[in-house]
């Protein structure tokens, strides 16, 4: 059975001008020790879906799902108290801005120790020993001294290492990393990603990596989910996705990678992401899709079979060519 199994997850926010659906019928399945990449641009609902799993959405959010289980437990029916026993211990999450994600008023040692105290009820000497071990594990030099450091005394890369140490403190089964390297320098980005991959190898935890960087996906993920405007447009093994993208959006994204460009000008996806209140009756990508037909504009496309990357498209691509008969088969 999958470690994290989410079926048909939708999240909408109550706003002054009516409900806004940030996540629309998303399926996420993560097996133990698997690395799942979720890729998409800002506002595509990548983070919101995972925050829903953590139960960290504001009260204006409404979460619905056909299934939402973690390690065999139904997250939908779990009370807040029980859920708090799981998050921070079995599911942990790290965020995009490491510098502002640590509390400026408390020392590094306190913030890591707090997790250990809350979930594992360790006493003070045990917490200290385990914290030192964790700091060493995430590659912090001179951990003794860093215990009493305050966040403002740390660099961005170091802060993210501390965040990771805090997240893996209770040996979680699943770590959700929400753009863990976006706010960091390029060289540090690679270090942090390497660290996450190594930790996942050493501890056997599963990793969900949210990013908008295709390069990060190519290097780390085994499975990829591509999100566009709140919907999941494609899902397949990483190798497959890069070899033969089936959704026109994925195709456009990959074609826009400088490494893949052939002409003098970098190809781009024309148009812009639909706004919060654009009501599109059909495919959300249709206005920007070079292959869009009247059908695409008027009706939500069905999901293609797994061999076509579960693409949410009326005419999924094979080797860049739209397949008009694909959906019927």
């Amino acid at each position: 059975m999958a470690l994290l199994d989410i079926r048909n997850l939708s999240v909408s926010f109550a706003t002054r001008s009516g409900a806004f659906r940030a996540v629309d019928s998303v399926d996420v399945v993560v097996d133990s020790n698997e690395v799942l990449g979720i890729v998409g641009e800002s506002g595509s609902g990548k983070s919101v879906a995972m925050l829903a799993v953590m139960g960290l959405l504001p009260w204006t959010a409404t979460v619905t799902a056909d299934a939402m289980t973690f390690d065999g437990r139904d997250l939908r029916t779990l009370g807040t108290r029980e859920r708090r026993r799981i998050i921070g211990r079995d599911i942990a999450m790290i965020f995009q801005e490491p510098m502002s994600s640590l509390n400026p008023c408390f020392t590094v040692g306190f913030q890591i120790g707090e997790t250990l105290k809350t979930h594992l009820h360790m006493d003070k000497p045990a917490r200290r020993a385990r914290t030192l071990e964790l700091l060493e594990q995430v590659g912090i030099t001179d951990p003794e001294r860093r215990l009493s450091a305050f966040p403002h005394q740390l660099s961005g890369g170091m802060s993210q290492r501390i965040m990771i140490a805090m997240a893996i403190a209770c040996r979680p089964k699943l770590l959700i990393a929400d753009e863990p390297s976006t706010a960091l320098d390029v060289t540090i980005q690679a270090q942090i990603l390497d660290l996450l991959v190594a930790l996942r190898r050493d501890t056997g935890m599963a990793l969900v990596l949210i990013t908008h960087d295709m390069g990060v996906i190519a290097e780390t993920a085994e499975q990829v989910v591509v999100q566009y405007a709140g919907r999941q447009v494609e899902q397949s093994p990483t190798r497959e996705l890069f070899r033969d993208p089936h959704h026109p959006y994925t195709f456009g994204l990959l074609a826009a990678l400088p490494e893949r460009a052939t002409g003098r000008r970098l190809p781009a996806i024309a148009g812009v992401v639909p706004g919060q209140f654009d009501k599109l009756p059909g495919c959300t990508f249709a206005p920007r899709c070079p292959h869009a037909s009247d059908l695409c504009h008027s009706q939500v496309p069905p999901r293609a079979p797994a061999r076509l990357g579960k693409a949410l498209c009326w005419t999924p691509l094979v080797n860049g060519v739209p397949q008009h008969s694909a959906v019927a088969s």
């Binding site: 953590m54 960290l56 708090r84 026993r85 799981i86 998050i87 921070g88 211990r89 942990a92 999450m93 965020f95 801005e97 502002s100 994600s101 640590l102 509390n103 400026p104 408390f106 707090e114 997790t115 809350t118 979930h119 965040m163 805090m166």
Partner: peptide
């Protein structure tokens, strides 16, 4: 962000608000 981090650690609302 650090308030979200505190909640993500599974701390009680009292501790998140009253301390962090």
């Amino acid at each position: 962000d650090y308030v979200r981090t505190a909640r993500a650690k599974g701390l009680s609302p009292f501790r998140v608000i009253g301390l962090h």
